[in-house]
Design a binder for these strands. Sequence first.
RNA 1: GCGCCCGUAGCUCAACGGAUAGAGCAUCUGACUACGGAUCAGAAGGUUAGAGGUUCGAGUCCUCUCGGGCGCGCCA
Length: 531
Amino acid sequence: LEPGAIPDEVTVERPRNPEHGDYATNIALQLAKKAGTSPRAVAEAVASRLRDTEGVATVDVAGPGFLNVTLDAASLGQLAGNVVLAGETYGRIDDYAGTRINVEFISANPTGPIHLGHARWAAVGDAIARVLEAAGAEVAREFYINDRGLQMDKFGMSLEARALGTEVPEGGYQGEYVDALAQQIVAADPGIVDLPEDERFVAFREAGYALQLQQQKDVLDHFNTHFDVWYSERTLHESGAVDRGMAKLREQGHVFEADGAVWLRTTDFDDDRDRVLIRSNGELTYFASDTAYYVDKRARGFDVNIYLLGADHHGYVNRLRAVAACAGDDPDVNIEVLIGQLVKMFKGGEEVRLSKRAGNIITLEDLVDEVGVDAARYSLIRYPVDSPLSLDLDLLVSRSNDNPVFYVQYAHARIASVLRNAAELGIDWRTADPDFSLLTHEREAQLLGLIGELPRVVATAAELREPHRVARYLEELANGYHKFYDVCRVLPGADTELEPINVARLWLCAAARQTLANGLAMLGVSAPERM
RNA sequence: GCGCCCGUAGCUCAACGGAUAGAGCAUCUGACUACGGAUCAGAAGGUUAGAGGUUCGAGUCCUCUCGGGCGCGCCA
C-alpha cells in the first residue's frame, strides 16, 4: 500500500444490529481498491492483527468486508467503573480545546417579548453552546440588542400613545404588553406625561427599553438559557467599533462609492448584489452595524462566530459570509450561519395563533406556561433545525412513552430510586470491589455499549452543531436501561444474600444514571431524582 | 424570474456515503403476589415525491421534473 492510500479518518461505529459485534469498521472496503485486492482479503489481514489486541474477544469479517469487533465482558464492564469515577466529567472531550467560539442567537428587538420563532434558538442555541463546551471549546453565548434606529422610536411613540390614550402611530407596536408597559412606566414616573413632546417619546422609549429588556432576560433566565454577553448596538457605535470596522473593510479594499453612497463589494464573495454601508443621506445602514459587529467579535478573539438565524433571514447567509471574506477572514472557518425553520404550536388539532400577552404573536412564555421548561426545551432541541417543526402541546404535557422527555427523565428517576433503595438496605456498593466480568447478560452488554457512546455522540453533535443527536442518544440510552432493568434484577430479594452480581449491577446502574444526567445537562434539561 | 430549505410508515419525526431504512403515537396481541407498569416483549404498517447519474455501496452526493415553506430595499 502507498502511504497516501491510507484514509485520514478511520470510521469505527456501533452497528445497529447487535449480531455485528460491539464495534464495526468499513476500513477494508475503503482500502481494497487502492490495495488492488478484494475487500474481504484486506479485512482478513486486519482482523488477524486485531485479534491479538487485549480486551478484544472476537473479530469477524462480514458482508462485503466489514470488520466486526466484540470486546470481552470484563473490559466492556470496566466502563461502568470508569464512568462512575469520572462523574460529571464523563462525556467531556477535548476536540475543541483552545478554540474560542461565539454563539449568537435570538438577538430580538427590545420592543416586545421573546416569541415562538426565537424560542427554538433559545433552546437549541444554548444546547449548541453546551455541547461545544463539553467538546472542550471556550464558548460565549451572545445576544445582540437592536437598540438603535427607527424601530426603537416607533416603540417609544407607541408607549407614549398608549399612556396618553391616543392612536398608536402607523407601523407602531400593538398588543396587551404595550399597554402594560405604558402603565408601568407612568406609575413609576407620573411626571413623564408632562414632558415636552420631543423629549416625551424618548423618555418612554428609554423606560420601555429598560423594562422590556429586563423582561426578556428574566424569561430566558427562567428558561435556563443564560447569555454571557448582551451586546448593545448603541455601544457598538459609541465605542468606535463602527469606525474601526469601516477602517478594516477599507483597508481590505472592498469598499467603494457610487450614487453618493458607500458600498461594500460583497459580490466579490458570492453575494448576489453589493450592499450599502452609508446611504447617500449620510446615515449608516443596519448592514454597516452588522459588519462592524463581526469585525468586533473577531477583535475580541473569537475564532469561530456562529450566527443562528430564522428561516426568514436565510438571505443573510451569503451576505454575512461575504462580510467575513471582505474583512480578510476565511468564511469557511471564521463564520458560520445556521438557519432554523419555523415552529408552530398545535393544541387540540388546531394551530395556536393567539397569545394571551402579545396578541397574534405566540411567546416563549406561552409555551413554557403550557408545557413547562423541561418539555419545552427538550422538544425544541430533539429535532434538526432545518425542518419546520410542529409541536403538539397535548402530547408534550402527557406523561408517557409518547413524550420523550418524560421517558428519559423517568429512566433517570428510576435509577435514582434503585440507588436509594440500595442505600436503605445498607449496601455500600461504592466501596465494594466489583467484578465487572459478571456483566455478561445480553442486556448488560448492550447497556454498557450505549453508555460508552456518549463521548462519540458529543463529538458528532459538536462538529455538526446538532444537539438533537444528544437527545436521540439519551432516548436510546433510556431504552437500553429499561430493557436491562426489565430482565436483570439489581438488588437482592427479600430473603436473598448480597451477591457480587448485585454490586456489579449497581455500578452499572450508577454509570447509566451518570451518563443520562451528563447528557441532559448538555441540553439544559433537569435530571430529576424523583418524578 | 433568481436563490435557500424541505419532501421517509396513517400521524410526528430519526438515520455524520454503509449491512435487512428505524423510533414513538395510532391499530392489534402479550408480560407484574420482588428493585418505580411513566416499563418491557411481539404483530402489522415503506417503490425514502418521480426520473436519470456518480461508486464496491445512495434516503444521504450531482442533474432535471413535481409538490410545500421562505427570501430577494440606499427598510430595520
